[in-house]
Simulated scan of single mutants.
Amino acid sequence: MSTRPRTVLLTGASGVVGRSILRESRGLPGGGGGDGGPGALRLVAASHSTAVPEAPGPTVSLDMTADWFGLGADAWEALAAEVDVVIHSAGLTEWGLPAERYRPINIDGTRRIIEFAERAGAAVHFMSTAFVAALADTAPAPLGADNVCRNYISSKQAAEDLLADSGIPHTVFRPTNLVGDSTTGWTSQGQIVQLMSDWIGRGRAPFIPAHPGIRMDFVPQDLLSGAVLRAIELGDDKGDFWVTYGEEAMDVDGCLQVLARHAAARGRTLRIPPVVDPDGIDQEELERLPPMSRSYLAVLRDVSEVTWCSGGVLPTSMPELRERYGVPNVDDTEAYLRSLAYAAAHLS
């Protein structure tokens, strides 16, 4: 039996998930640098062009849209000879783009990862999205063709299908919208949750479009990162995991109460806007609003539709993640509040 550390290739290392995984890896034997002896993990951070400050060692520049990752055949083969496990986190996550924009990296990039993993004899841990639930055959309603999230979700579902058909050992982690670290609120960059929350928290939303009964499911990023690393430590190479709170997630009123608490901590009083069923929005009133407000409300409406088409409550694997991978039981409202505070102090 080999006593060398297992080498883990982390794609998308400069992204929100990638940098969170690297931070979490500091708690592993050897700090993710492979110096902990047998059973340790050596993380190789791969990024296209952006620096990765959390990387425990030298980084590698990979282009997921190019053959051989842009390395050339010999360097690709040499990398495959080193790698035992792949965390595939690279992808285009921006919403609202044409379908063809997602294909080169989210779909064709995953196909290249599969080819690489086959050559390396490596398991793949794929970072998908919980929003694929909205495309399930069991969805109570079809997701609108013009939903701002649809093309992104479809690309992730296509990537999952490629992995399922490939026969290679793999897991799929499906996180909902991620917020900052559960303890500190830290995040490497702001995302849609922070952007929309700041807009609402400043009293700029005339109303909140939300389908009746949906949950506002936000998960601290370190819960995802810790689960992925623990799966690798245990040698797990199959399973689908919904990294969500599900029925435990806050409802819309609870989310707005957190925003009011955050505003109060910043010396502001938030007049909580009314919650309106998207089907009952007065279109004439909407047209009278400034363009930015219309845009933000459209995003809120479409995200609500995604949750509604997922059954109103996202599927969850949280009990299994807590039991098998030691994911801590974190109160989502407090984690959300910490994330808002961090964003206000460091990302504004």
Rank of each mutant, 00 (worst) to 15 (best):
L92A: 04
A81Y: 06
T187L: 10
P142K: 13
P53H: 10
V52S: 04
Y336H: 03
L79P: 02
W68H: 08
V17I: 15
I281M: 11
K156L: 07
A130D: 10
E305Y: 02
F218A: 00
R19M: 06
V327L: 07
T187K: 09
R26G: 12
R42T: 01
R26Q: 14
E284F: 13
A51Y: 08
G37N: 06
T129K: 05
L289P: 05
L178R: 00
D253L: 11
F241R: 03
P142I: 13
E248M: 11
V219I: 15
E334F: 00
A13P: 02
D332H: 08
L256A: 12
F126K: 01
D217V: 09
L79S: 03
S14N: 14
L10Y: 02
T307V: 15
V252G: 10
E285Q: 14
E247M: 10
T333A: 15
A139Q: 13
E118N: 02
L28Q: 04
P319S: 11
T183I: 08
N106P: 01
R261H: 09
C255I: 02
A123H: 00
G254Q: 13
Y152T: 00
V193Q: 04
G239M: 13
R111G: 14
S49G: 13
M292P: 05
N147Q: 12
R103T: 07
V148N: 07
I113W: 04
R4V: 09
T184M: 12
I168L: 15
R23G: 06
D237Q: 15
S20T: 15
H48W: 13
W186C: 06
E82N: 06
E320D: 14
D67M: 01
G70W: 08
I200W: 06
E247V: 13
T307L: 07
C309L: 02
R112F: 05
G96Y: 02
L340P: 00
D331P: 11
I113P: 05
P328I: 09
